[in-house]
Amino acid sequence: MSIWKSGIFLVCLCSFFLISLPVLAVDPGSGNLTQIWEQIQDYRFVDLTHTFEPGIPHWKGDPDETVETLYSYEPGNGTLGSGFYMQYYCHVGQWGTHVDPPAHFIKGLRTLDQISPREMILPLVVIDIHEKVYQNPDYVVTINDVKDWEEKNGQIPEGSFVALRTDWSKRWPDQDEMQNTDSFGVAHYPGWSQEVLTYLYEQRNITASGHETTDTDPGIVVSQDKYPLETYVLSQNKYQVELLTNLDQVSEVGALIVVAFPKPLDGSGFPARVFAICP
């Protein structure tokens, strides 16, 4: 995986561990960053990515994925036997756990290929509202939720990735459960709020945010075909990740998140592989 080979990745890890985890002391003059790789092998790696396939939960306007086997180890079933296995995938960019770049909503802002690798390895902040969502599926995170987090953990770091834990991903892979639509066709699932996103992006200057649902906005708003909160996030020229999972396995503070994705020219979105490194 190329991101593991990048000096940027290792420098970011080095900075994080030297600041937050003094037991992982590395001589900065040694020129040998492999010490970082060796030391993190004892840490937990938590996959925050859903496995995607045809039929998974997705935004209501997206067509389903199709997969075709073009070449197989042995001939048969209409494929060419070539001694290797190759598939053809057809899906929208916003498929499965995926990245939305600013250009997804805002013409003229950055596309996927313009997002720097420096923005792909970040301190991870997890704001946990899952118990409130259990009581009310329409719950949206409030500024009090964020202030409570900061009172307990300290100020949200500048440049961090803030993930909203709702445990909604536990409904995966059932599309109906994820949408939670009532008899009137209105979806009921949690989301962000404008006051919180404004605080995070304009006062705490975070780099990106993510959530477990199919949308930034709560289901009630999306059911009206309105997306004001997603529009806001992307208008800040920042990216977001949708359909995260396993946030219940990550602490509220202290981990790193790695958001890796392809680099299509002028890309408007693409499935991502997202994971956390947890001390």
Rank of each mutant, 00 (worst) to 15 (best):
S2L: 13
I3N: 13
W4A: 15
K5T: 13
S6F: 09
A25W: 12
V26A: 08
V26S: 06
G29W: 08
S30A: 14
S30N: 13
T34I: 07
Q35W: 10
Q41A: 04
D42T: 08
H50N: 14
W59Y: 08
E65Q: 14
T66H: 07
T69F: 11
T69E: 15
Y71L: 15
S72T: 15
S72M: 10
E74Y: 13
G78Q: 09
G83H: 05
G83W: 05
M86L: 11
C90Y: 12
V92D: 12
G93Y: 14
G93R: 14
T97M: 15
P101R: 04
P102I: 10
A103I: 11
G108R: 05
L109W: 06
D113V: 03
S116C: 10
R118P: 00
M120W: 12
V125R: 05
V126L: 10
I127E: 01
E131G: 04
N136K: 06
Y139D: 04
Y139G: 02
V141A: 06
V141T: 09
V141S: 02
W149D: 09
K152M: 06
Q155R: 13
P157N: 01
E158C: 10
E158P: 04
E158D: 11
S160N: 02
L164C: 10
W168M: 09
S169T: 07
W172D: 03
D176H: 11
G191N: 08
W192G: 03
Q194R: 12
Y199W: 00
L200K: 00
R204D: 02
A208D: 03
S209T: 15
G210L: 06
T214S: 09
P218M: 04
D225A: 07
K226Y: 03
K226R: 11
S235F: 06
Q240N: 10
L243A: 01
D248L: 01
D248T: 02
S251T: 09
G254I: 12
L256P: 01
V258F: 13
V259I: 15
A260T: 11
F261Y: 14
P264V: 02
D266T: 07
G267N: 07
S268G: 05
G269M: 05
F270L: 07
A276G: 08
